[in-house]
Amino acid sequence: MTEAIHHFIEQYGLLAIFLGCVAEGESAAILGGFFSHQQVFVLWHAFVAAGLGAFVGDTFFFILGRSFADHRYVVRLRKRPGFRRAFRLLNTHPNIFVLSNRYIYGMRLVGGIAAGLSNIPAPLFVILNAISSAIWAVLFGTIGYVFGLGAEHFIGPALMRHERLLVGLGIGLTVAILAWFVARHIANREHARES
């Protein structure tokens, strides 16, 4: 079983990191760094997959906001908690908002839509989004790499590579669950503030 998981991760792991980072993908970027430490991927490949995924995701939501403002999906996203705050911040500090939006958990999706609905020029958004995506990918990929170092030190080098992969999946699942609880707490607080 662990051999099959290992083979699957080697074959499709970078694609999974890319797809995971298209949406709210901190856990995918962290797993990319962790598996790079386990020598499943080359570290810079994980950085590129995470950075491209983050860039494509935010650009996609920007295009949705810019070109499909009246579509029911965009209208529904505009009603999400935090959208008004994101739009207000974007109009007062557009450069800082685009550079920092992805670091505020739960704001990335509505932030991309808000950027598309704002009057920020598309070329400026693309440049700032590319810079932010690259820094974000290196930061969270490095966190995963450091988790790998810590796990190896804590668990010991006696474990075979396959068991380390299962530990990595456990870390990724834990990070995803914690992120979900944090996002839910923030959304509830924003919803209470806007009510």
Score class of each variant (00 low, 15 high):
14 L>Q: 00
170 G>H: 01
38 Q>K: 08
132 S>E: 06
170 G>E: 05
153 H>C: 05
139 L>T: 13
166 L>I: 15
19 L>A: 05
91 N>H: 09
77 L>V: 12
165 L>G: 13
158 A>F: 09
12 Y>K: 06
91 N>K: 02
159 L>K: 11
142 T>I: 02
104 I>N: 02
51 G>R: 03
167 V>A: 13
150 G>V: 15
129 N>I: 09
62 F>W: 09
39 Q>L: 13
90 L>G: 09
137 A>V: 01
10 E>R: 10
64 L>Q: 13
19 L>S: 01
189 R>M: 11
99 L>T: 09
105 Y>D: 06
77 L>I: 14
133 S>H: 07
52 L>F: 10
192 A>M: 10
34 F>A: 10
60 F>N: 00
161 R>M: 14
155 I>T: 15
173 L>W: 03
129 N>F: 08
33 G>T: 04
170 G>N: 01
7 H>V: 07
163 E>N: 11
192 A>K: 14
148 G>Q: 08
53 G>I: 05
10 E>I: 05
169 L>A: 07
135 I>F: 07
85 R>T: 08
193 R>I: 02
136 W>L: 07
89 L>H: 11
92 T>G: 03
62 F>H: 12
74 V>Y: 14
163 E>L: 09
190 E>W: 04
117 L>K: 07
26 E>D: 11
47 F>I: 07
188 N>I: 06
116 G>A: 08
118 S>V: 04
158 A>M: 12
22 V>S: 03
161 R>Y: 01
65 G>W: 05
66 R>F: 04
129 N>M: 06
108 R>H: 11
162 H>R: 08
152 E>I: 15
85 R>H: 01
63 I>F: 12
80 R>V: 02
74 V>S: 14
42 V>S: 13
47 F>G: 00
11 Q>L: 06
111 G>A: 04
137 A>G: 04
